[in-house]
Write a protein that binds this DNA or RNA. Structure first.
Lengths: 105, 105
DNA sequence: AATCATTTTCACTTAAAGTGAAAAATTAAT
DNA sequence: ATTAATTTTTCACTTTAAGTGAAAATGATT
């Protein structure tokens, strides 16, 4: 059985699905906006990761928001982001991100 | 008696106070983020305008948010923006902006 | 009429977001 | 084990949002 959280999709598949360059995914990772499983050096993403990334892309390219704003909204556990994006998807990231980003930014 | 909403401050004074170029204020006006009173061609800003602009600058330069994100938050009458910025200041803009920006964007 | 401030336009700068290409490192296949 | 294929990493480049400098055009003031 595979759940939303199973990290099983390699980066190229995710990049193709989202229509982005794989380097864009590395870029988001630098901001702790996604955290794929590392098996050796290879990265594996879950369905929840993919939904989350899709959501981020929409915020950016349909709404015109920037990465920093998305991070700010997550840190504030804000209604804007929480309401639009399904709970189960957000839940995978908000705690991680709040912790992570508070450190280095 | 002068209230928060009295539009009486010329652009250079506002720009100096905020530490920005007056052209930045024209720029914000293009996005309907502020709406000074026009007497002839001259622009006059209120204290509420000034507070509002100061708030926008902080969102941008302390949080790293962009203009589009601020507009998105206002349109959603969102908690992030509404909680930080005093009610009386926000109230001057949100209805105006929601109406205005819905049209052209 | 001359001066001064304000507005407008044009072109430029800077930084965020992202990409292309290629080298280096891993992993998979024979 | 050697080759082939993938993935990661680095460098330098592109594009767009945000903002500025300079100067011309407009308008207000003395």
């Amino acid at each position: 059985m595979f759940s939303e959280e199973d990290k099983s999709y390699p980066i190229e598949l995710v990049a193709d699905f989202l229509g982005v360059n794989s380097r864009t995914l590395y870029y988001y990772e630098k901001f702790a906006l996604v955290c794929p499983l590392r098996r050796g050096r290879k990265r594996y993403y879950s369905k929840a990761d993919i939904k989350w990334l899709k959501f981020i892309r929409e915020m950016m390219y349909e709404q015109g928001m920037n990465l920093r704003s998305i991070i700010v909204l997550i840190r504030r556990r804000d209604q804007v982001i929480m309401n639009i994006c399904p709970d189960d998807v957000v839940d995978c990231f908000k705690n991680y991100l709040v912790k992570k980003v508070d450190q280095d930014w």
